[in-house]
Design a protein around this nucleic acid. Sequence first.
DNA 1: CGAACCATTGACCACCTTCAATGCGAGTGG
DNA 2: CCACTCGCATTGAAGGTGGTCAATGGTTCG
Lengths: 237, 237
Amino acid sequence: MLSEALESSWPVRFAGRSREQGPDEPESLEERVARAPVRTLEAKKHVFTEGDQRSHLYRVETGAVCLYKVLPDGRRQVVGFAFPGDLLGFGPAGAHQLNAQTTRPSRLRCLPWRSVERAARQNPTLAVTLWEAIAQELAVAHELLLTNGQRTATERVAAFLLTISRRNARRGEDDSLIILPMTRTDIGDLLALTIETVSRVFSSLRRERIIDLAQSCEVRIRDMESLERLAKGGGDL
Amino acid sequence: MLSEALESSWPVRFAGRSREQGPDEPESLEERVARAPVRTLEAKKHVFTEGDQRSHLYRVETGAVCLYKVLPDGRRQVVGFAFPGDLLGFGPAGAHQLNAQTTRPSRLRCLPWRSVERAARQNPTLAVTLWEAIAQELAVAHELLLTNGQRTATERVAAFLLTISRRNARRGEDDSLIILPMTRTDIGDLLALTIETVSRVFSSLRRERIIDLAQSCEVRIRDMESLERLAKGGGDL
DNA sequence: CGAACCATTGACCACCTTCAATGCGAGTGG
DNA sequence: CCACTCGCATTGAAGGTGGTCAATGGTTCG
């Protein structure tokens, strides 16, 4: 979910490095994270849960992580996913306000916050990188609020698919092939829809020849323009 | 919306000050903002709009500001309100991703981001204050996602009233008297409900003797426990 | 092959929206 | 002072989008 932030911060980071010299040359976040120890988790395991002490900043290497909150009676709202390259574990110092659970077997690099904070203090460029990353998180949350609050079921699913498609495009991957590393339940809890509604919308998009569904987790976009029209609010089908 | 962050940052800020000495003693965010120039706005005026360059960090002195996003066809999602004491104008460097509009005549203190950034570079404690503020924003957005995505209309209104009540309590004000400086439309667009539904829920809470409605903008909580039960998901009335 | 899990599809229903009318308070002008 | 208007809030009746309940199907793993 944070790769955007990390990516957009690169020019800043490199600008910072070019200024720095000497034996104490500060390391970029990228460099620090690359050396960080790896934690390997099976599918459906928690990276952290609400109330846990914030201990590490994570970066997803492989797999996928689902970020969510729950009501006392069990109703669940997914607030985002973290895919390879994304940072994870933001938030105020103190206790986590979210639950983070792998949806697949995953590998995460773990950087202690203590060290991140120390580094940010010495390297303002790294602090800017972190700021841009959390600001991007905030923008993603606001966008999801707009989607879930104002768009219809079809528009929500279209917007969801486009978000992943654009992410693929930014990474130089195929923007028309979408692999969904999460269940319909996860998607439903993200978009505030039931699994039945999500499933019906997928089926209806397939009937309209807007997508193909080779498997339930593999979506091929056949008509990008129709999908974009839907996401913008151009009528339900 | 950000007073929580500002307040919770005070101990940190003071701790920082006590460490700093000499003529270059860094100023806290609070001190800087107190000296910042004031901008006076009538009701319904924009502080900034989506796409504007991020220029200032604001603090609300009086009045109230509504933060929102819109879809191309005009559908609007309010993502939060900023009340006196709250900070405003966060986000990634570059263009604003939100619109900010006063709901009442308001006065804002304006601190140029350029100066905030310079100060944060020299004063790590101020950087922490800013971090805690934006992290708090993120937590608020996630909480609203949970509310709008998983709670019923009644539960959403109850949660909304409790949020303001708790804010009042934190500021040492009466937590049972709620003045709403925004219209039903603003509340509806925050909670992803129509004004009619918001109005019906208020009326129904009044019938159940959970609140009093002296005027449409003045809510008196008569039964805090029922309200809390509702917000947690303890059945609709 | 059977079990478990997930996805799909259908029928019915409920919550909230839509549409419409009325009320209410503030500001304005006769 | 009262009528008028405008904006906002309230209330009612009807309708639709998405939820609930239930059955079926498909895939993976033992």
